[in-house]
């Protein structure tokens, strides 16, 4: 993968990426929160959001990407995602139900709230893990 021109100098790639990244992120949020009604959910949304960060990192360089999303955020985000999932389970236990028994969250829409909380946890964990994986592989290459 020898490059004659630096990636930052390629104007079409730069403009294309600048144009696409916000839409990819918006689509990720759509997939995340529309997962109850159409195809989608936390896993897919997480991977799509990570793809936006990976595209940004590939075109504008790893340093710029790490200014936008620092590595320390991602390391914390990985754990926070799992904690949100587990925390939902603990919250239902504190409200008197079983682990992950969403019906106790709300008398009518408990299942909805539970599923949104759990999917948010999955989305955060997957986004952070996938972006971090890209950072680690790319960083290793420049040493």
């Amino acid at each position: 993968m020898k490059q004659h021109m630096r990636m930052q100098d390629k104007i079409i790639l730069r403009l294309g990426a600048k144009f696409l990244v916000p839409f990819i992120l918006l689509f990720a949020f759509y997939v995340q929160f529309h997962g109850d009604f159409g195809p989608g959910g936390g896993f897919q949304a997480g991977v799509i959001a990570a793809a936006a960060f990976v595209l940004y990192g590939l075109i504008f360089g790893l340093d710029t990407a790490q200014k936008v999303v620092p590595k320390s955020w991602l390391e914390k985000g990985m754990a926070i995602g799992v904690l949100v999932y587990g925390g939902t389970g603990v919250a239902t236990m504190l409200l008197g139900g079983n682990f992950l028994e969403y019906d106790v969250l709300h008398h009518h829409n408990g299942q909805h709230y539970g599923i949104i909380a759990v999917e948010a946890g999955v989305g955060i964990a997957v986004t952070c893990t996938m972006t971090l994986l890209y950072y680690l592989f790319a960083e290793r290459g420049r040493r």
């Binding site: 959910g41 896993f43 997480g46 991977v47 997957v126 893990t129 996938m130 994986l133 592989f137």
Partner: peptide
């Protein structure tokens, strides 16, 4: 669905 995501994590 979950197998694919776990698959990419283990591949990494």
């Amino acid at each position: 669905l979950t197998a694919i995501v776990v698959g990419v994590a283990t591949t990494a």
